[in-house]
Write a protein that binds this DNA or RNA. Structure first.
Length: 636
RNA sequence: GGGCACGUGGUGUAGCUUGGAUAGCAUGACAGCUUGCGGAGCUGUUGGCCGCGGGUUCAAAUCCCGCCGUGCCCGCCA
């Protein structure tokens, strides 16, 4: 989606407002004491099933309570006073509901003109104008490839970023690179002591090495000691090993980027944990938060800097029965914990402290924009300093995220607490076992549950079907078409599941090409495109065309298309990509019914309006798919 | 010990924030639809005590209370 944001109310909210204000007028004149609330009125309006009515309000039930009267009676009185508007042509009462019917010619003209005028920008909104948001995802460890769980995180982060952009927010797509810590130290031990000669894609190779070293550590305690020593070296950041560790991690991240590009996922900036440590961001943050921190001289936490949980619990009651009574921010050896770094990092995100980061270009991206990274050498750039932060992180980290948010309240930055959103997603398990990075049960011969392999498998599957397709005229493009279908299948399959739910990964589901799936949506798009291809340019709707609209699938489809912007705003406000997938399935399914029941090219007098509907459908569908990061295909 | 998340036809799920008319969709099974704009589709049949028990309400999948089941978290790991 590109171009100007549409701004203003959507067609569907225009008609709901009209209905609501007409309801309000009627209520005020019959029951002046009822004092109807505008928002309540809007919320009472829903779309009823069936084709007879377009909007329905349950407001009479609410009023019945307030006034102690019968709902049906109230609705009856109101109905008599309802005035017609520009779009509402008729109202009636059924079972206490006030139903409204639209003038389908007028409303269809409004929606279709809007789609034609706004094109690529149809469905966008201006609600976020002037605000900046940072989205963090997927923050994979640079010690192994993206697995099917990392992919879920990355896809979520991408869609959420797209949604914010569609709502006119300025968006910074940020990736936190956790290049310190035991995972990377473990891989580095292998790099130094076993092999530094990759013979396959770097992250895959490194992941296998990492798993090997983990097994080694279980048998040889001295290896574990050496890994811990390496970890300390990397933390200190000055030794040859530390430089080697960073170098190795960068190679791994390069390989991750390849995966990201394959999935059409791009970033603006990568913040490396080792640069956070190097920048002494921590000590600056400690300065502004000294009031809430303690440094016990003895006991369990002797020598460390901690935050006592009894300071947190008044603001987060759910942490009260916790087993620990403090959270360590700086270890007794002087190194910051993950908690400490994340707290400091968020102080940077919101511009509370200046980290003095230096940046350089990490690499060019296929979208034409480079991704930058923090670096020991480089120049200052403008990143961070946002008003809102979305952290796409697994639900298992809710405890730490909660403590961190409360810490900002305690140091007097309530606005930060309120604007850190932990977008907690469920786990992705693989059939029969849990995903475990350490054991590498997802990595290796015959069981390679990586994002890369998933795409290869899905493309293969799509290819089998595409080869049989008689509709693909350009056989040269079979490979790229299959890949696009595969991407559509995978992304849709992941995103349609509610964010908070766990997923048990199965090839069967991930490669789904029919039913509630991405390929189903792409397929309806291709059919619509074929109709347009046979008809040449579609002229704008004439009055005569508008007369041909019926109350069948044609108008149902128009009504659904009129809701695009509301859907985008809702998906953005709730951080729920599945709102989009639901909408796309609804649109596609309705289009299929329309397609089966209402001839377009041979539609006679109705040809004009039906063509315009088809044309609009392709635009709306393409816009919504693009928010999911899915590209359309004219043939498949 | 405490907390968080999830529980909806055989299977996978939407709806729960903001209570509202026959709980939506897919898949599976069965039966149909192509000399019609693309059958990766459409139509029909089958299949649900919305985990259980209370409560609030004119009205509960939705809100409240209590249970049960599953997963996760409560580390000077990240």
């Amino acid at each position: 989606m590109a171009g100007q944001h549409s701004g203003g109310p959507s067609p569907s909210s225009t008609i709901r407002q009209e209905f609501a204000s007409s309801l309000k007028k009627a209520i005020v004149s019959v029951y002046p004491e009822a004092k109807p609330d505008d928002e309540e009125l809007m919320l009472s309006i829903t779309a009823p099933q069936g084709q007879e009515w377009d909007m329905s309000s349950s407001v009479a039930f609410r009023l019945a309570k307030k006034l102690g009267a019968n709902p049906a009676e109230i609705a009856g009185k109101l109905s008599g006073l309802m005035t017609e508007g520009s779009y509402v042509s008729k109202t009636e009462v059924t079972n206490g509901y006030l139903n409204a019917r639209l003038d389908e010619r007028k409303y269809a003209s409004l929606v279709l003109a809007r789609v034609r005028d706004h094109g690529d920008a149809y469905g966008t909104s201006s609600i976020g104008e002037g605000r900046k948001v940072i989205v963090e995802s997927p923050s994979a460890n640079p010690a192994h490839p993206w697995h099917v769980g990392t992919l879920r995180n990355a896809l979520l982060g991408n869609v959420v970023s797209n949604l914010f952009e569609a709502c006119s927010y300025e968006v910074e797509r940020e990736d936190y690179i956790d290049d310190l810590g035991l995972q990377v130290a473990t891989a580095l031990w292998g790099w130094i002591n076993i092999s530094s000669k990759p013979d396959k894609k770097f992250d895959q190779w490194l992941g296998e090495l990492y798993v090997r070293v983990n097994r080694e550590m279980e048998q040889r305690p001295e290896v574990k000691k050496q890994v811990e020593a390496l970890n300390k070296e990397m933390e200190d950041g000055v030794s040859q090993q530390a430089r080697e560790g960073r170098e190795m991690a960068e190679k791994c991240v390069m390989a991750h980027q390849q995966t990201a590009f394959d999935y059409r996922i791009y970033h603006d900036v990568m913040v490396w944990e080792s640069d956070i440590v190097r920048s002494h961001l921590l000590s600056k943050v400690l300065d502004i938060s000294s009031d809430i921190l303690e440094k016990p001289g003895d006991g369990k936490y002797a020598g460390a800097i901690v935050i006592k949980l009894n300071r947190i619990t008044p603001f987060a009651r759910e942490l009260e029965g916790s087993r620990e009574d403090a959270k360590v921010i700086i270890r007794s050896n002087g190194a910051a914990t993950y908690m400490g770094k994340d707290f400091a990092f968020h102080a940077w995100k919101f511009g509370l402290v200046d980290a003095g980061f230096k940046y350089r270009k990490f690499m060019d991206q296929p979208n034409g924009r480079p991704v930058y990274c923090t670096s020991p050498e480089g120049s200052p750039m403008q990143f961070g300093n946002v008003r809102r932060a979305i952290n796409v992180i697994g639900g298992e980290q809710a405890y730490e995220q909660q403590i961190m948010r409360v810490m900002f309240s305690l140091i007097g930055h309530e606005e930060v607490t309120k604007n850190i959103f932990h977008l907690a997603h469920g786990r992705v398990n693989i059939e029969g076992s849990k995903l475990s990075a350490r054991s590498g049960n997802w990595l290796g011969d015959g069981r390679n549950y990586t994002a890369d392999d998933l795409l290869v498998e899905a493309t293969k599957r799509a290819m089998e079907i595409a080869q049989k397709s008689e509709k693909i005229t350009d056989k040269q493009n079979l490979e790229s078409i299959s890949r696009a279908v595969a991407l559509g299948a995978i992304k849709f399959e992941y995103l349609k599941i509610a964010t908070e739910k766990d997923i048990t990964f199965s090839w069967q589901n991930a490669l789904n090409l029919e039913g509630n799936s991405g390929p189903y949506v792409l397929y309806t798009y291709a059919r619509a495109k074929r109709i347009l291809g046979k008809s040449g340019d579609v002229p704008p709707l004439s009055d005569a065309d508008a007369q041909q609209i019926t109350r069948g699938h044609d108008f149902q489809l128009v009504k659904l298309m009129g809701m695009a912007q509301d859907v985008v705003e809702k998906a953005c406000a709730e951080l729920r990509p599945s709102v989009l997938t639901d909408y796309l399935l609804g649109l596609s399914s309705l289009f299929s019914k329309f397609y089966e029941s209402m001839p377009v090219v041979k539609g006679g007098d109705a040809k004009g309006v039906r063509l315009e509907i088809v044309r609009s459908f392709t635009i709306v569908l393409a816009n919504m798919l693009s928010l999911l990061g899915i590209a359309t295909l004219s043939e498949m």
